[in-house]
Amino acid sequence: MRRRRVRPPLLIGAAIAGIVVVAALVSLAFDPYEVTRPVIVDRFLRPSLAHPLGTDHNGRDVFLMTLLGARSALYVALVSVLVGAAVGVPAGLFAAARGGVPGEAAMRAGDILFAFPALVTAAMIAAVFGPSATGAALAIGVFNVPVFARLARAGGLALMGRDFILAARLAGKRMPRVVAEHVLPNVAGVLVVEGATLTGFGILAEAGLSFVGLGTQSPMPSWGRMLYETQTMIPLAPHLVLPGVVVIVAVIGFNMLGDGINDALDPRLGPA
């Protein structure tokens, strides 16, 4: 047996995703400046030992703000993925197992959801309930539902005709149990891959929604709102562009993680 070589994209993606998660965790415990409180006298400080990435127009530490921003980004991204998976995967598996009119109906309902862009949905939720991070997460999550549903259905359909599903039914197992024992574990791989990729998308969407004021609310920092607040001051203090760079790197990182897991799971690609 040849050992599978871990491919660079998986390593890089996992490292970036790991850094984002660690940053969010660190922000929970490490806050020496009470960072969300403005200290106007310290504004626009260049990077120094006290403020490794300088301060913004309100004198807040950019490094610590960015750490806190990771928390907002991950919160919205993970909730959106969990919402999407929690609704989409059962719906997709139901459509695959049941087929016929109920299955079709479930999938068409997903198509209707798919027709609303996440940003529009978020704007609607914000208009009704007021803007919030959770609202943004739900809006993006709604958009994720049909993505997971389609994946789960496609994977499920490919398995439903296999003889081991028939054997499980012959053993007297009811359909929900057959799906839980035999179908879900066999499609879990693709779902995890999609989850990683959609987490990246969720981070981007959170930044976008917060940029237009529909996402994470003040005083909790968010990468998107940090960029919005400081966009006119970047010529003055170039270090304030950091949140934008962080968003790009995080999105690419989660995408690479998804692709890397996909390659690692797909035996056809094998070691090159």
Partner: peptide, 14 residues
């Protein structure tokens, strides 16, 4: 009970 044709698809690979 049943025995199916294709031994490759008869079992859950996991």
């Amino acid at each position: 009970q049943a025995v199916f044709q294709d031994p490759a698809s008869s079992f859950d690979p996991r």
